[in-house]
């Protein structure tokens, strides 16, 4: 029986995929820097300071995180990976979305025409429950099913 959580849809949509989970803050620039610089066809997490995701594939995944951290170029990085088709399908935040991630997903949606589905405020229990590789289903009303 999948566990169900309810959050706030920021960029709404329905999608299913495999979870990639960052228990700590997700450093957008550090995570995607290598893929962007090397123009890779996939996005392997290059943030050595992220023990949950380092060296794991992020493209097409359902990224589960508390918030993004790091350089204020983070939003530009999201815009770039969205255009290149190597972004996560969705970003699910346990807490409130941060200003860098919000700017990135909104600019990708409006200026690049690539929507990354975003739900925030899913609660601490969500991030404690979800594991790397688990199936995740996101509904347009902000409902998230794990497992």
């Amino acid at each position: 029986m999948p566990k169900q959580f309810k959050g706030r849809p920021i960029l709404s949509g329905s999608v299913e995929g495999e979870a990639a989970v960052s228990r700590g803050g997700f450093n957008t620039l550090a995570s995607f820097q290598k893929s962007v610089v090397l123009r890779s066809k996939t996005a392997t997490c290059s943030d050595q300071n992220n023990p949950d995701l380092y060296n794991r594939q992020l493209n097409g995944k359902i990224l589960c995180l508390p918030q993004t951290i790091g350089s204020t170029t983070g939003g530009l990085v999201i815009q770039t990976i969205a255009r290149r088709g190597i972004a996560p399908k969705a970003m699910l935040f346990s807490g409130h979305i941060d200003s860098l991630a919000a700017a990135g997903v909104i600019l990708a949606d409006i200026w690049v025409g690539q929507r990354i589905i975003v739900v925030d405020q899913l609660g601490e229990e969500f991030l404690h429950s979800v594991e790397n590789g688990q199936p995740v289903r996101v509904l347009a009303d902000g409902t998230v099913e794990v497992g």
């Binding site: 204020t72 170029t73 983070g74 939003g75 530009l76 815009q79 200003s99 860098l100 919000a102 700017a103 990135g104 909104i106 600019l107």
Partner: peptide, 11 residues
């Protein structure tokens, strides 16, 4: 000012 990201600052 908030901590704005590249791109939204310009907007």
């Amino acid at each position: 000012t908030n901590r704005n990201s590249a791109g939204i600052d310009l907007m």
